[in-house]
Design a protein around this nucleic acid. Structure first.
Lengths: 255, 255
DNA sequence: TATTAAAGTGAACACCGTTAGCTAACTAAT
DNA sequence: ATTAGTTAGCTAACGGTGTTCACTTTAATA
């Protein structure tokens, strides 16, 4: 009757997916209310209307559930960021990069607890080891959460690469203000590491360096704000804008 | 016999202090081994050789214990940083500020889990509320942990103020490279907030702005490295040095 | 319809933080 | 020196947690 002639997901699979979604939704609701450490497997079970033991049909452990939730949150952040970027046309690389920063901040601040879970996860518990093992099993070089984080950074890095391509092809390109002397070792590592972020082509070292510097700065801003450590607390928007301006200055762009 | 004629701490008080130290040491050892969420009150009790209930003679709750531990860790960080700064003479403000950054990083990286506890604390659990209440009770405007964090930042901010004093008194002072236009509101807030950090006198707005920017950058660097998110992972020392160079450039200093 | 795999249950285990009431030990004052 | 009061420690218990195991129900399949 319910045979799978259409090739689509069977009734059971649909049910299962629905239950999983329900579980995750409950977990997130608890995350919102009580923070990362306040998520209780038994409370989730109570919420979903099922025994605690039943959840083990869906997740190997609470940590595994949290990890999946964490990945979902990254997906949400990435989707949100991408949407914000796409509000500007594909050629407006600068605007799209600004949108990336802005969306990142917006999401992290309006979803503080989720963000807290995301950044505290990679090394919390023994989860890192678990992550790493899962990653290796799938043939990936990184644990899934680090991978997601890089996917997120790549949204901005790729845009930078495209921006370089265009500016360099139509008139010399913009020389960055200043690049300190770097050893061949660091130079190589920057290129290697950022081949993953800045997926693009032969962007010059100065750009890569400025990109990494900017990435660190934005990370600092967002984490500080989300964790309540930002010195500025009233005119945060303007402060961000001024920081963006300064970073653009590093790329030799006056905005 | 054991009367307190000398005015010093009584035998009981000494014993008590010793026990408290033992408890904290055990807590820290567990922090080191199992991370912030792996600290168990009962395990501490077992370790110290006492019943779990007995610990409540020393701390109101596990959270209270963690908070005190957190403050101790800040004290350790501050002491270490101060020591590193004092390796340079009092006039070498630039060197002392570099030492501040370097010591901060060093401590955070060699005490990752402690650092993790420290930055995840201010908002974790309901501890923030507890902190705030404790702070208000003591008449302080901030919770003790935020206060410690600011004391730490002040080590660097104060040095910057002294540096400005000297350079401005002996020949015009160094103009920072660039300061974006800031609204009166943000200007005022920067001055207000940083009156706490940069305890000093009439340092110009551009310096305050650059200081806050630098503070954000260093925070980003340290957090990323401690949490394993720093893009650079092999030539970290050199990367830090290059970042410091760039920040000095913001102050108009080539070095 | 009989078979088989999945989903769910209930009880148990070993932990956890916290509280209440009691006992022994030590301090301080009479 | 005796007494009163404080402090540190104990045991026992309560309600909570994650996790496992054996068992039953449910639903899809052959």
């Amino acid at each position: 009757m319910t045979s799978n002639t259409a090739g689509g997901p069977s009734r059971r699979e649909r049910m299962r997916a629905e239950t999983i979604a329900e579980i995750k939704a409950s977990a997130r609701s608890q995350l919102l209310q009580h923070g990362p450490s306040g998520i209780s497997l038994r409370a989730i079970a109570r919420d979903v209307g099922v025994t605690a033991a039943a959840l083990y049909r869906y997740f190997d452990s609470l940590d595994a559930l949290l990890m999946e939730l964490c990945c979902d949150l990254y997906d949400e952040l990435i989707a949100e960021t991408r949407k914000a970027m796409d509000a500007s046309p594909p050629e407006a690389h600068l605007e799209r990069m600004k949108a990336w920063i802005w969306a990142f901040r917006e999401w992290a601040v309006t979803n503080r607890r989720e963000f807290e879970l995301m950044i505290s996860f990679p090394e919390d518990h023994n989860a890192m080891a678990m992550c790493a093992r899962a990653g290796e099993a799938a043939g990936l070089p990184f644990d899934p959460i680090t991978a997601k984080s890089m996917e997120h950074a790549q949204l901005c890095g790729g845009e930078l690469a495209k921006f370089y391509e265009e500016t360099s092809s139509q008139g010399g390109g913009i020389p960055p203000v200043q690049l300190p002397e770097l050893s061949p070792g660091l130079t190589a590592e920057l290129r290697d590491r950022c081949a993953l972020f800045v997926v693009g082509e032969t962007v010059p070292l100065a750009w890569i360096f400025s990109f990494v510097s900017g990435w660190v700065r934005v990370f600092g801003l967002v984490v500080m704000e989300a964790f309540g450590n930002l010195p500025v607390q009233e005119h945060v928007d303007e402060f961000y804008k001024s920081q963006i301006l300064m970073m653009m200055h590093d790329f030799g762009i006056e905005g």
